[in-house]
Design a protein around this nucleic acid. Structure first.
Length: 494
RNA sequence: CGGGGUGUAGCGCAGUCCGGUUAGCGCAUCUGGUUUGGGACCAGAGGGUCCCAGGUUCGAAUCCUGGUACCCCGACCA
């Protein structure tokens, strides 16, 4: 495997090619035979599994339980909620037949025209409709509430243009769907879950995010309010990394889900839904990688420490192997995920490059010299530095290093992100910053969808969010000059 | 669906404009040897439906017609 990444230039043109290259060469994923679909390779899936596991535990701490709902949704379910149809009914895969037959002309297999479904089935693009149709049967009284369900599933959206992890026709995600007694409780749930996402992004992925409300234009189809975590990639584009929706009573009304309240009166249920997807993998890659490849946060890295022997001849290899096994055991005793790479068909230098490409946080190299001196070479992926340390206490040292590396990757991303939030007050500045610097632009907006739309058409930038912690400030809309009471964040996005 | 590009060995490509030995190079693979503290080197070997179909020609990877697949840029979106 001769791998050479193209130089990482931050220009838009090269960045997507660079990204593609990295995803494939690091062994994370590749395009499949099916257009727009992605094969997630074992290494990529191992990272996703770590993410899943952590998120799943975080959900369960809030009382959420896992469940599973069908892949197929009757077409009629979709038309129940008007806005939802508008947003989702378009780019969907549709099942129209249930049988194949041998081609009468002998040209292989064809769809049996007699096997047409009476009602077409939609391959879920999201599961609100099928779930609310189910919840109807689960809910009678306030005593049945809240319902807090999550499902890990695949969904299909027939996107016209796809990009590994960031936008694929089929993707893996989790979707939480909750039902509540009151508006307040549902809103609280919406906020709780976006904060879970924030915590996961920042503490596990080292990905600083801005939490905020979506503008009406960018809101989920069928939601009253959408909360989002917005991250910034190294090319200056924003990435919506997770969303939590307050659905009001829209789906309860569409599917007629009522409960008897504490006064014995029938009321519609309040709903939320929230999700993150394999897109997070894209975020992880784009936020931290450098010209040598991936940089994985220790908390998510499938392998945290790799040991590489350096040797001449069988005898030295055996000696190195023996000592490495002992050190590996010490590391494992500290709860670290460790791999020894004693392949003898590639040289040490090759392995070094390979593990850098794969983003392994710490690499240890042990050779004859070290065996004699009781030392070992320790290399950090995040800083690309290496030093020779004593074998004595190395497990302790590395256990501590994991936290340091985790903190360092986050800090680097945070500093970059913060340096890429620019306050602007004039349209000239807005355009100038957007074109030459990128990143988030903090600017006043008159609050109308028309203005947002006009800005999007003029610059491709959209309102990424209205930050939760936005400070009241009187100003004038950067586009129309009309009065505004707070700043919002604009950016070009994926 | 619009605009551009590319289909040649497992991967990356040259050759196509201007038709002519047995279709070539790098990486990977296999064999042997020498190496081994940052992507080893030498020698040898194996590996091809030149995207598909049709046409022109003594002769097509190369020219013509039609199809098809993929990539990039837009519109759509997490």
């Amino acid at each position: 495997m001769a791998v050479e990444l193209k130089d990482l230039t931050k220009s838009e043109d090269n960045y997507s090619q660079w990204y593609n290259d990295l995803v494939m060469k690091a062994g994370l994923a590749e395009n499949s035979a099916v257009r727009g679909c992605m094969v997630i390779k074992p290494y990529g899936y191992a990272i996703w599994e770590r993410m899943q596991k952590v998120l799943d535990e975080m959900f369960k701490e809030t009382g959420v339980q896992n469940a599973y709902f069908p892949l197929f949704i009757p077409k009629s379910f979709f038309s129940r909620e008007a806005n939802h149809v508008e947003g989702f009914a378009k780019e969907c895969a549709v099942v129209t037949h249930y049988r194949l037959m041998n081609d009468p002309q002998g040209k292989g297999i064809v769809v049996d025209p007699d096997a047409r479904l009476e009602e077409e089935l939609i391959v879920r693009p999201t599961s609100e409709t099928i779930i609310w149709n189910t919840y109807k049967n689960w809910i009678n009284s306030y005593r049945d509430l809240p319902i807090l369900c999550n499902q890990w599933a695949n969904v299909v959206r027939w996107e016209m243009r796809t990009r590994l992890f960031l936008r694929t026709a089929e993707f893996l995600w989790q979707e939480g769907h909750t039902a509540h007694e009151t508006r307040e409780e549902a809103i609280e749930e919406t906020e709780r879950m976006i904060k879970v996402y924030q915590k996961f992004a920042e503490e596990w992925m080292c990905l600083p995010v801005i939490v905020g409300h979506k503008s009406p234009n960018e809101r989920f189809a069928g939601a009253e309010d959408t909360l989002t975590i917005e991250a910034l990639m190294q090319d200056g584009k924003a990435l919506q990394s997770g969303t939590s929706h307050f659905l009001g009573q829209n789906f309860a009304k569409a599917f007629d889900v009522k409960y008897a309240n504490r006064e014995g009166k029938l009321e519609y249920v309040w709903a939320t839904s929230w999700g993150v997807s394999t897109r997070l993998m894209g975020a992880l890659i784009m936020a931290h990688s450098d010209n040598n490849g991936l940089v994985l946060p220790p908390k998510l890295a499938p392998v945290q420490v790799v040991l590489v022997p350096i040797y001449k001849g069988e005898e030295q290899l055996a000696a190195a192997r023996k000592r490495m096994n002992e050190i590996a055991d010490e590391l494992k005793a500290k709860g670290l995920r460790v791999k020894i790479d004693d392949r003898d068909n590639v040289r040490a230098g090759f392995k070094f490059a390979e593990y850098e490409l794969k983003g392994v946080p710490v690499r240890l190299a042990l050779g004859q010299r070290d065996l004699e001196n009781g030392t070992i070479e320790l290399a950090r992926r995040d800083t690309l530095t290496k030093e020779t340390v004593s074998q004595e206490g190395v497990a302790e040292l590395i256990a501590g290093l994991m936290d340091e590396i985790q903190a360092n990757i986050f800090k680097k991303a945070l500093d970059y992100r913060n340096s890429m939030i620019t306050k602007v007050d004039t349209w000239e500045e807005f355009v100038e910053v957007l074109n030459n610097k990128g990143g988030f632009i903090s600017a006043h907006w008159d609050g109308t969808p028309e203005t947002e739309q006009a800005i999007k058409e003029a610059t491709k930038a959209t309102i990424r969010c209205i930050p939760l912690d936005v400070e009241p400030e009187e100003g004038k809309c950067v586009f129309t000059g009309k009065p505004s009471h707070y700043r919002v964040l604009f950016a070009k996005s994926y």
